[in-house]
Amino acid sequence: MTIRKKGNQQKTGVLPEKVQAQFEILEQELNIPFHNKSLLYQAFTHSSYVNEHRRKLYTDNERLEFLGDAVLELSVSKYLFERYPHMSEGELTKLRASIVCEPSLVIFANELNFGKFVLLGKGEELTGGRERPALLADCFEAFIGALYLDQGLDTVVTFLQRVVYPKVEVGAFSHVMDFKSQLQELVQQSNNGLLHYEIIDEKGPAHNRTFVSRVLLNDKELGVGRGKSKKEAEQQAAQNAMVALNQSLYKEE
């Protein structure tokens, strides 16, 4: 694993062949062969494992976790900035926080079966460390850090496009940006009438369809939105309607 220098000599802890074989399986499952295997091993090495193998010169994943957290936040920020051009800074921050948080990272890690590859000390293993949320979230971030060092930001983005971003696209975090509920509350405050949503267009092949929705208030169109699903299109329409209503209210003042 990580090389440490002592005088003019270099020493490194070498994982057992059986453990290395397990990581080969992980690389195959992810379809991401690492150039520097030590980075991959380190990403899954918990401090409890290092403490039980002090003479092997292993290195835990805490520094990679630090780096991965920053890389993940940058990558998700850029994705959201480009994907949702009409969102305010506050809305983008709120949505990013719901993606780059422990519960979400645990979901990503579990879907990739990261837990079974973590190198743990015996005590941590016996107390259920392999399923501990904080440990799994840290491992996911450490993996992102290792992947960034090994293959660069473009590969990280490709990985996130496969693992993280599709969940945003299908509305897994829509509770954070529920513009339909916000619009409903805004209309109710003014007692302006009833809202109605309708799909007015569908474009593209079945596997890559774009929906167009509009929201009406008492048969008057308030906003139009587009999305990869009907739900996303309706949310976009509601958001655009809120922008229009707020602008009209501002002009009246």
Rank of each mutant, 00 (worst) to 15 (best):
Y79D: 12
L64I: 07
A70K: 15
Q184Y: 03
E89L: 15
Y84G: 09
S190T: 09
P133V: 10
F159K: 04
G193K: 05
P33A: 02
V164N: 02
D150W: 13
P33G: 06
F117Q: 02
Y148S: 06
F117K: 07
L80F: 03
A137W: 05
G223H: 05
E102F: 00
Y79R: 13
G171R: 11
R162A: 12
R209A: 07
N36K: 15
G7W: 12
M177R: 14
L245F: 01
N192Y: 02
F66L: 14
V50S: 05
F211M: 05
M242F: 03
F117R: 04
L30Q: 10
Q235I: 03
Q20D: 10
L57Q: 08
L64S: 06
H207W: 07
K11Y: 13
T45Y: 08
V163K: 09
E234S: 08
L119G: 02
L147C: 04
L92I: 13
G145K: 08
D138R: 15
L15Y: 04
R226H: 06
E29A: 11
G225I: 10
R214A: 12
L105G: 00
G68D: 08
S38G: 14
K78L: 15
S174N: 14
V76I: 15
L57W: 12
Y250K: 15
I3M: 08
N61K: 11
H196N: 08
I200H: 03
L74F: 09
E62I: 08
G121P: 12
Q161F: 03
A244E: 13
Q239V: 00
F66W: 04
V212G: 00
E102Y: 00
V168H: 01
F211T: 05
G128C: 11
A97M: 11
F114S: 01
P103D: 04
L95C: 01
E89F: 15
V170L: 06
Y41P: 05
G128H: 06
S48L: 06
R209S: 03
H207Y: 08
L126V: 02
D219P: 04
E89W: 13
L26C: 07
F23C: 08
E52M: 01
L57H: 15
V156M: 06
L72M: 15
Q184L: 14
D178A: 07
G90D: 14
G145F: 06
T93H: 12
N240D: 02
E27K: 12
P166K: 08
V164K: 04
Y79Q: 12
L67P: 01
I99P: 00
E234R: 11
V100K: 03
Y58E: 07
V168E: 12
L119D: 03
L72V: 11
E185M: 14
E202F: 00
E234L: 01
P133C: 10
V50K: 06
R132S: 12
S47D: 09
I199P: 03
I25W: 02
E232P: 00
A21T: 13
D69E: 15
G90K: 13
T210K: 14
G225T: 10
V106T: 06
L26A: 09
H207D: 11
Q151C: 01
A142E: 01
N110A: 03
K228C: 07
N8I: 13
A43F: 07
G115S: 08
L183W: 05
K78M: 13
L195H: 01
